[in-house]
Design a protein around this nucleic acid. Structure first.
Lengths: 209, 209
DNA sequence: CCGCATCTGAACTCATGGGTTCAACTTAAT
DNA sequence: ATTAAGTTGAACCCATGAGTTCAGATGCGG
């Protein structure tokens, strides 16, 4: 078999260890030695799987981004069949998104993207389709369905989705000190409630529009 | 005099050069030699003014943050005496904020903060009072006045300010590819219009609240 | 049991860069 | 003119870390 290499695929361990260390130290400050140690592997083994520190970085980011995004999109699920009161479902989804967004891995990933976007312009392409873009699209899809059902009043679900996320996540950055402080669950629920209320007032309560 | 040192204060040049290089390369990837060259100064001169690469970083960030913030707060000025149609003034202010927020220095500063916040936890304190926090507060002050005048309907101007900025800046990140792509002025105006419309619908058109 | 692929640890090369030293130079103030 | 502070370039020391090499484990299929 091609994939049943030697031991229980070290590759996975390397990618995870790499992300952990990169997240903790930043790209330039991480040394491959530490990554190897973190992954429970010898340094040359790392170079057996990845040619470069740079490609190691790319692959680690890609894997992490994929994982983070899947959770996010899954959290939108309740919107497929909302209850009688749309606000309740929206608020539930909002809370779930906030919890995911403030998660340690998520914050670390965001920090890494921001800091290395200029040195690795290609990670944007890697992450784009699996990044906030796809989340906005997925939310826009849900909102479009709801608009058809007359429960949201908009002709531009993409805009509505962008604004919902802005309303929800914008206030976060300030409160979490750029993702370094963590909020307790009641704060998150409060933020979810405030964002949902404003969104509903602007997009679901109005008569026509 | 204490401040009429030797030549026309190299200190300023050093801080500016440092920010330029840090912004371009990131903290770890910048070397003091390059910073000195960028500032038109010899390496030992840098160490005459700053003890460390780290304190050099702190001071450069502080200076840049101060400059960036002052512009931002100044852009809120029109809200002190809005015209008959509040939307117009809001939209004008929103456009100005967007232009400042997408400015190269501004994006670079944001990237630096995100990437080094874990290695320099203290830059948060340096920047807090001169960061997005103070902008939100300043905007909240304006909104409070407008609420008193009955032109905005809210009992929580801080929340309204946070949400306005979220509505305005949230959609930006996606469109500018984390600040790497620049938008032309018509796009910015469009974004300002969309954010303002939603904000007004939620906070200024409603009867009571 | 053997060969093959992989993993390991340690040592090594080499480039980069932080921070310092120093002797010579420039400038401002007295 | 003299002094003192500040600047300069070049050379220097030293730590760190990317990437490689190699000789010896270790496990697997046949």
């Amino acid at each position: 078999m091609t994939t049943t290499r030697g031991r229980i695929d070290k590759r996975q361990a390397i990618l995870e260890g790499a992300f952990t260390v990169f997240a903790r130290e930043g790209y330039a400050q991480s040394c491959v030695q530490d990554i190897a140690r973190e992954a429970g592997v010898a340094k040359p083994t790392v170079y057996n799987h990845m040619t470069d520190k740079a490609t190691l970085f790319r692959h680690a980011i890609e894997a992490a981004a994929q994982a983070v995004l899947d959770e996010r999109v899954a959290a939108l699920e309740p919107l497929a069949a909302p209850g009688d009161d749309l606000s309740v479902t929206l608020e539930e989804v909002a809370g779930a998104l906030l919890r995911l967004h403030t998660d340690g891995r998520s914050c670390a990933l965001r920090r890494l993207l921001y800091s290395e976007v200029t040195h690795f312009p290609d990670i944007l392409d890697i992450v784009r389709e699996s990044g906030p873009d796809r989340l906005t699209k997925a939310l826009a899809d849900r909102l479009a369905r709801l608009a058809l059902a007359g429960r949201v009043h908009t002709t531009d679900p993409d805009l509505a989705a962008e604004q919902f996320l802005g309303l929800l996540l914008g206030p976060l950055e300030a409160r979490t000190q750029m993702g370094t402080r963590s909020l307790d669950d009641s704060d998150l629920r409060e933020l979810a409630r405030a964002a949902t209320r404003t969104f509903v007032r602007a997009w679901a309560e109005q008569p026509a529009r």
